[in-house]
Amino acid sequence: MKIRPRTPEDLPACIEALAEVQAADRYPVDWPQDPGAWLTPDGLAGAWIAVEGETVLGHVALTRATKVSRLFVTPAARGRGVAVRLLDSVRAAARGPLELEVSSEGAAAIRLYERSGWRRVASTRATWLNAAGEPALLHHYLSP
């Protein structure tokens, strides 16, 4: 497995990987009209992918130089440390502490962040709806 910066040519494979994640975990909750644009949010400072050959195993983005976003690992690649390596890549590229938000429905992601030393600093309600049709509860974390 290799972690490297995402290129524009990687977007189709990233969208395929995201579709696998969405089918398994409902992340994102609703499939975006333009998944390529969703993977390239405003303020994008960088994006990295985990790959084996041509297969995308995971993805992470950094926005506004401090916010981790669009982190996912395909179901087949889980349990191999892919998410930790992606987070390490973002931390190496960023200056200072990082922040991220995670839905309370993302129990596995929350366990990963807390095991990795991320600290929950707040919780708020999102403007989008969770699986129950209610405003999602977002937990806000800071990097160690």
Rank of each mutant, 00 (worst) to 15 (best):
A93H: 05
W48M: 13
S104R: 10
A17C: 13
L44M: 08
G43C: 07
S123N: 02
G53D: 08
V68R: 08
I110S: 09
E105W: 00
W128T: 13
A37R: 14
L87R: 06
A93G: 04
D34V: 14
L100K: 01
P97S: 13
P75E: 03
L129Q: 07
V60H: 00
E114A: 10
H139V: 04
E101S: 12
L11D: 01
L57I: 04
D10A: 12
G106D: 12
L87E: 09
I15R: 00
T7V: 02
V60R: 12
P28W: 04
A77L: 12
L87W: 04
R85I: 07
T74I: 15
E16T: 07
A65P: 02
A94I: 12
M1Y: 03
R70W: 02
A47Q: 04
E105T: 08
K2A: 09
H59A: 10
W48T: 12
E114Y: 08
Y141M: 03
S123M: 14
V56H: 04
S123G: 07
E99S: 09
W38H: 09
Y141P: 00
G58A: 07
A77C: 14
G58K: 13
I3D: 06
R78L: 10
E114I: 08
W118D: 00
G81I: 08
L112G: 04
G53L: 08
T63C: 06
A45P: 05
Y113V: 10
G36Y: 13
G46L: 02
T7M: 11
P135T: 04
G43Q: 02
A24C: 10
V51M: 01
L137Q: 14
P35G: 03
A45D: 08
E20K: 13
Q22N: 15
R80C: 15
H140L: 15
S69R: 03
T40G: 01
I15Q: 07
R95V: 10
L100A: 12
L129W: 03
A76S: 14
W31V: 06
T63F: 00
A126K: 04
E114W: 11
V68M: 00
L18W: 02
A17F: 01
E16F: 02
P144L: 00
Q22R: 15
E16R: 09
D30C: 05
W38K: 13
A65Y: 02
